[in-house]
Simulated assay, not measured.
Amino acid sequence: MNAEWSGFTLRWYGVPAKGPAMLRAARNSLVIGLVAAGTSSVHGTLAAAALRRYRPPMLTTLVLARIAMPEVLMGVSLLLFFVSIATIAG
C-alpha cells in the first residue's frame, strides 16, 4: 500500500493523548528537556562569565580546534578509506 498525501491535519497530535503510557512518556520527555535546558543555560552563563573575567591564553586555539575537528576527522577517515581501497585494488 502506498502512502498518499490527502491534506493537512492535526489529528495525529491528539492520538498519543489517548493512552496513559504515552502521556507519561511525553511528560517525562518534557521534564527531562526542561531540566537539561535549565542546567545548560546556568552552566553556559557561568562559563561565559568566567571566560569574560579570566582570559585563558589558549582560548582561541581551543575554540577553533573544536570547530575544525569534524573536518579533520573526515579528512583522515577518507584518507584511510582510499588508501585501503587502493591497497586492495592494486
Rank of each mutant, 00 (worst) to 15 (best):
A68M: 10
T61N: 05
G19S: 15
P70K: 03
V63K: 09
L62V: 09
L64I: 11
Y54Q: 14
L23P: 00
P70E: 03
S6C: 06
A86R: 13
A37I: 03
V35S: 02
L59D: 02
L79C: 07
L10A: 14
V35N: 05
L59V: 05
L23Q: 13
V31E: 08
P20L: 07
T61Y: 15
L79N: 03
A25L: 14
V83Y: 12
L79P: 00
Y54N: 15
S40G: 00
T60N: 15
E4D: 12
R11D: 09
A17E: 14
G44H: 03
T61W: 11
A37C: 05
R52W: 15
M1F: 10
M74I: 05
L62R: 08
E71R: 04
G44V: 00
L34T: 09
A26C: 05
H43E: 13
S29A: 11
G90V: 03
A37D: 02
S84E: 08
L59Y: 10
L73D: 04
M58Y: 06
A3Q: 12
G14C: 04
A3F: 05
S41V: 06
E4F: 00
A50I: 10
I85T: 03
L30D: 02
R27S: 10
G44M: 02
R27Q: 13
M1K: 03
T60C: 06
V72M: 10
